[in-house]
Structures are given as structure tokens and as C-alpha cells.
């Protein structure tokens, strides 16, 4: 992987729900090792954009490229074919995703949540998967909670397990969909700390967030979205201290 080259490319992405246009002709690119934060008011389309990246939402038009390969479609000679669910699954493994509502598997312990996909999808040996999972649990500070069920964990702990679960697939990029929005305020910090550490280790991350301090300190690139378009983007300190657009200014005035 060439550091500095675009790892993820989004070209002319458009998505509607019924008659409601959610995303209009989005172009963006994410370089390997970069942290991109997407901010904006609710309903601006930022979560939908993130969900289009791994085709949890299938865009109406436009293409997402990961490492130059289009997501969800495949060339067969001169014709373009939509991938089957199971073909898409192979691509999705490379894009870890962390949800607002954690979505841990409630019938499995923290450890079982983490080893599930490595064993079932990547056919790793159980003993190896457990070994790696324990390293990841260490990393998110939850080694001693390995055998707890999700409902026995706090929201912050659940989200950290969810991050470890995604990391276990060794993804090329991590997508975070408002990872701290469902948390009590005092639990936000522990999740952001894990994300900060990931960023420092050079993980490529796309983060939809309302945490402006996190965006300012950690992001390499900040994108402000409103009304389904990218209004402006750039280095976070510049965008935050010197917004060019009136919409960005009014949004920042409300949240900062």
C-alpha cells in the first residue's frame, strides 16, 4: 500500500430515498493512513454517504473505488455486472464498520463477537483467532471482560468491543458511523481514546461524528456536509477557524 495514494475514491455518488435526494454527486478521496472526519447537521447525508461506501446502501449512481477496484460491481469483458451479496461480502471485509448502536451480537460474549468472522469468514483456526482477539481486547482495554455478554457491558465498553470486532478482520479502512452518539457523556472519552490510538497507528479512518474536538485534533481532513453535498473540506484547523461558506459558519457557530 502506497502511503499518500488514495485508498478510497468516491466518484459522482448520488442517492435518493423515494423522491428525497439524500446525496448529490459526491466526490471525495481518502488517502491511506489518513483520518477523514465528516461533520454536518442531522439529515445532511453524512451517514448515508458512509453507508454507501460499503454498499449497506446501494447508491443510485456513482462509484466507490477501494484500492482502484469498484465496490459492488465487476467487469466481465466489456459489461459491468452487479455483484451478488456474497461477492460483495468479500469486499466488505476490507472495510470495517462501527455503528452508532454498536450492534454487537447479543447471544455471544465479547470474545465470541470478535472471533466470529475470522473463524467463519476467513477460516482462521479457533485458537489463533482467540489469541488475536485477546490482543485486540488488550488494545481496547477490555481483556478482563472477554467472557462478558454485551448486556453486561456499558455502552462505552460495547463500542470498544465493536471496534475490536471490526479490527479482527484486518480491514484496510475503518468506517465509524457516529460511534459516540448513543453514549452517556462520561463514556464518550474512552471510545474516542481508542479511536485516537488507532489513528496514531496509521489506520485509515472515515469518521462521521459530532465530536468537533476529536475532528480538530485527530483528523487529517475535515469534510463539512449539508443538504446532501460536500460544502467544503480541508485541513480541520483551517475549516474550523476560517470557514469559507456561510452554511459552514452558521453550523460551526451552533456547535462550537
Amino acid at each position: 500500500m502506497n502511503v499518500g495514494m488514495p485508498l478510497l475514491n468516491v466518484e459522482r455518488l448520488t442517492k435518493s430515498f423515494g423522491t428525497h435526494r439524500v446525496l448529490t454527486c459526491i466526490d471525495m478521496s481518502v488517502r491511506a493512513g489518513d483520518v477523514t472526519c465528516i461533520v454536518g447537521p442531522s439529515g445532511s447525508g453524512k451517514s448515508t454517504l458512509l453507508r454507501c461506501l460499503n454498499h449497506l446502501e446501494v447508491p443510485d449512481s456513482g462509484v466507490v473505488f477501494l484500492d482502484g477496484a469498484p465496490i459492488g460491481v465487476r467487469w466481465r469483458g466489456q459489461t459491468l455486472h452487479r455483484m451478488s451479496f456474497n461477492e460483495l461480502a468479500a469486499q466488505r471485509q476490507r472495510m470495517g464498520m462501527v455503528f452508532q448502536s454498536f450492534n454487537l451480537f447479543p447471544h455471544k460474549t465479547a470474545l465470541e463477537n470478535i472471533i466470529e468472522a475470522p473463524i467463519v469468514v476467513q477460516r482462521h483456526k479457533r485458537s489463533e483467532a482467540i489469541e488475536e482477539a485477546m490482543v485486540l481486547l488488550d488494545k481496547v482495554g477490555l481483556r478482563e471482560r472477554a467472557h462478558y455478554y454485551p448486556k453486561q457491558l456499558s455502552g462505552g465498553q460495547q463500542q470498544r468491543v465493536a471496534i475490536a470486532r471490526s479490527l479482527a478482520m484486518r480491514p484496510a479502512v475503518m468506517l465509524f458511523d457516529e460511534p459516540t452518539s448513543a453514549l452517556d457523556p462520561e463514556l464518550v472519552g474512552e471510545v474516542l481514546a481508542v479511536m485516537r490510538q488507532l489513528a496514531e497507528e496509521g489506520m485509515t479512518m472515515v469518521v462521521v461524528t459530532h465530536e468537533m474536538a476529536f475532528a480538530r485534533d485527530v483528523a487529517d481532513h475535515l469534510i463539512f456536509m449539508d443538504g446532501g453535498v460536500i460544502v467544503e473540506g480541508g485541513p480541520p484547523r483551517e475549516v474550523l477557524s476560517n470557514p469559507q461558506h456561510a452554511r459552514t459558519k452558521s453550523f460551526l457557530a451552533r456547535v462550537l
Partner: peptide
């Protein structure tokens, strides 16, 4: 649906 989405992002088949 969060459960099936989580499974999908982990690359699990249907």
C-alpha cells in the same frame, strides 16, 4: 436489521 448489517460489514454471507 443492525444485526444483519453488522454481519454484512464483517463479510459474512447470507
Amino acid at each position: 436489521t443492525g444485526q444483519t448489517e453488522a454481519a454484512a460489514t464483517l463479510g459474512m454471507s447470507k
